[in-house]
Amino acid sequence: MKLLKLFNQFEALADAEIQGKATTRREAFSTFGRTVGKVATVALPLTAFMAPSRAFAQSSSMSIAEVLNFALTLEYLEAEFYAMGLDADGLLSGDTRETVALISQHESAHVEFLRSAIGSLGMDPVESPEFDFTAGGTFEDVFNNEQVFLAVAQAFEDTGVRAYKGQATNLMGNGDILTAALQIHSVEARHASEIRRIRGSKGWITGATNTTGASAAAAVYAGEANVTHLGVDATTVTSVDTDHVTEAYDEPLSTQAVLDIAGLFIK
């Protein structure tokens, strides 16, 4: 049910995107960075015939605006999560509170940045879904228990890293946007490392080990044990042991896998 809502929202986006494609996408992209808003004015027939029901999850490769709206949805989730955590009475204190406050600041900045970037492509940024950070009761204490809050934070950050990584190739058509996405991606990785270390985990992921303590987060780490890159088994070309080799690479997540995870937290 939750996922259906999410998909419906993305369908609306896909409709908007088709209009966007129909206009001057190339021209609009070239305006990125100059914060020039573009309004769709011309409709071309070819793309208009495309099925508007195409949802993010069903397309193997997304347009740049779709990717940014997908990223924006994840940033909404993170930004609201941290804002609520900082607002929760007695949840966060001391160093942990300072760390979370900085992360919160970054996620809110990402929301604003992505909304602005999407606008500069002549597209409408998607609005925030409504979230349920207890994931239907799985994390009942998320805003009462610091350990639960940090475990969910770890899951979000490690997911965020994998989500951006999975979209990079969809952004190759626009160097400025790709670079900006990579600049967000590495900030998410810094967050992930810090949250993991506060919780007593290594800052990096060994194999596909889920150190959140929540089985619900297993999907966040699925596939992380991969050691084959560019067709090379990275364990066979080095004397470094396999655990360390898996730690040395983070793996991308597909759009569908990210939506499945995020969907747990969307009303």
Binding site: V161, T179, R190, H191, D250, E251
Partner: peptide, 27 residues
């Protein structure tokens, strides 16, 4: 460097590595 790459497979590998460098940097 990401934007300098033409082959998407190379971009994916660079992405797999850069986030680990960022995890290192943070630690």
């Amino acid at each position: 460097a990401g934007r300098l790459l033409q082959n998407p497979d190379f971009l994916v590998v660079a992405g797999k590595i850069v986030s680990v460098e960022a995890r290192h940097a943070a630690a």
